[in-house]
């Protein structure tokens, strides 16, 4: 089976999820439990850093759909950053840019949260 791992680190009030490897139907439950844990701990501001993610399947995409509402209902969000072109193409193909914010760099995404935080 393809390798996949998830790492979470805090950047101020934002949690950054780093994805690595192949996110498919088999590995999706790992990401799921990561989100569950964040929600349990009341962390709703999430940036997903895709820098080292090589592949994503639709089951992987589904995980983001499954959790975005909870995040937004709690004044948070899921934002995406550092996506490789082949991965972005899949998101783009399925219309994700309509729903999610994509950033070139993680720091921009974090910054966006911080701006929103000030306006709150």
């Amino acid at each position: 089976m393809a390798d996949f791992n998830v790492n979470v680190r805090g950047v101020g009030s934002v949690n950054v999820i780093e994805l690595n490897g192949y996110l498919d139907a088999h590995t999706a439950p790992m990401l799921e439990s990561t989100f569950n844990k964040l929600i349990e701990e009341n962390n709703f501001r999430v940036v997903v850093n895709f820098e080292t993610l090589n592949y994503i399947s639709s089951a992987g995409l589904g995980v983001f759909m499954a959790y975005v509402e909870t995040m937004r209902d709690n004044k948070g969000d899921i934002k995406f950053s550092n996506m490789q072109d082949n991965v972005y193409n899949i998101f783009d193909l399925l219309g994700f840019p309509m729903l999610y914010e994509f950033f070139k760099d993680e720091s921009e995404a974090v910054e966006k949260f911080n701006e929103q935080g000030l306006n709150k």
């Binding site: 999706a28 639709s58 089951a59 589904g62 759909m65 994700f96």
Partner: peptide, 28 residues
């Protein structure tokens, strides 16, 4: 991808989850 996955799972709840994720991810 899914056909490979589905064939290996014997828990109904897990199959349901996989099905749902695939569809909501693909259909938004």
């Amino acid at each position: 991808d899914l056909s490979k996955e589905f064939s290996g799972i014997l828990e109904i709840e897990m199959v349901g989850k996989l099905l749902v994720y695939s569809i909501i991810g693909q259909m938004l």
